[in-house]
């Protein structure tokens, strides 16, 4: 099981309705179906992923997040998930608003670009950080809107979004005392549980 999944799944109520934006091969929804008997709905664009979802019996809709979510009604899901995708969409702030319109609660995970190694990389090499975790060059990366934990906190404040829970972890989704002291410096991944 992916480590982020074991953290997130505790935040999801049994028998609830879960919308996973960028659901990949549907493995997380499959797990939630098995363990929590949820109503599943996933969105993705990748053809192979969509076929894998169909093979797993996951409800999957071929839809581009950048074209909006107007087809989903207000409060129609208990939880809307966005894992490691926020930084790849065209309008992250609009997407967060839309998620909070559709879901009673939302879970968002993203890579923290203020992680000290990325800072050091940029300072010492003067080039955009490339790591095993974010293995892209600046010109071919799908990640177009990097943010930091501080940035996301301020977005939440600006939009009066309630942060129900925030967990900061490393690339293996483990927490450490250093991360608790300065999450924005030591954390690699942020996991937010938010609501209106």
């Amino acid at each position: 099981m992916r480590a982020d999944v074991s953290i997130i799944k505790d935040w999801i109520e049994p028998q609830s309705r879960v919308l996973d934006l960028g659901c990949g091969d549907g493995s997380f929804l499959t797990l939630l179906k098995q363990e929590k008997n949820i109503f599943d709905c996933g969105l993705d664009l990748d053809q192979e992923n969509i076929t894998k979802c169909l093979l797993a019996g996951i409800n999957v809709i071929e839809q581009d997040l950048d074209k909006g979510l107007a087809n989903f009604s207000d409060n129609s899901f208990d939880t809307v998930l966005l894992t490691q995708t926020l930084q790849a969409v065209q309008k992250p702030d609009v997407l967060v608003d839309e998620m909070l319109r559709i879901g009673k609660k939302c879970i968002i995970t993203f890579p923290n670009f203020a992680y000290w190694r990325y800072r050091l990389y940029l300072i010492s090499k003067g080039r955009m950080p490339v790591s095993t975790y974010i293995p892209f060059e600046w010109y071919n990366t799908p990640n177009i809107h990097f943010c930091t934990i501080k940035d996301f906190d301020s977005l939440c404040k600006e939009k009066s979004i309630k942060v129900l829970n925030r967990t900061v972890v490393d690339d293996k989704y483990q927490n450490s005392s250093l991360m608790n002291i300065d999450p924005n410096f030591f954390g690699i991944n942020a996991i937010y549980h938010i609501s209106r």
């Binding site: 709905c41 809709i61 087809n71 129609s76």
Partner: peptide, 17 residues
Amino acid sequence: REIVNTLLKANRQVSYL
């Protein structure tokens, strides 16, 4: 997509290709 969106609004299980 009209059919899909109507089904979503009715809280039905739907996949779309």
